[in-house]
Amino acid sequence: MSYQERQSLVSLISSILINTLYAAYMAGRYPQADPYSPEVFHFWGSFFLILIPVTIVAKIVSYILFSILNAIATREAEPPITDERDRLIELKSTRSSLYIFSLGFVVAMAALVFSLPPAAMFIILLCSGLVAEMFSDISQFFFYRRGV
């Protein structure tokens, strides 16, 4: 398994872990109020705003840990450059994840049209973001393994 394949798998696992742990932590803070009350919207606003820096920091930490552990286990250094194949794979996987997130956005808006509570819309947005991220990592792994 190449460095990039391992990196895709680590990114996939860290995405699932970060989102699951963060959602589990925040679920305990969900306001027991009317679903349309300002507190609920305040909760979801802060949920997404805090999620962004948490994800960035956790991803950086997982990336550093992966580099160290990978270097110890395989004695293989990180590829020094990003070449045209890496860029093509990144573009293709980003495109796939954008399609998934766009679909999730449409479903989230449909939830509002069908009079579901705002929490349903935010949960769909969160899930589609996670699924899009996972799909990006899986497609990167697939492209590195099977070819572009």
Binding site: Y3, Q4, I81, D83, E84, R85, R146, G147, V148
Partner: peptide
């Protein structure tokens, strides 16, 4: 040619068609 070894492996195996420049 300023690419990674993985790219050369992929080209050799026919898994990746390089750009005209490469």
């Amino acid at each position: 040619v300023s690419v990674t070894r993985q790219t050369i492996i992929a080209i050799e195996k026919g898994d990746y068609a390089p750009s005209l420049e490469l």
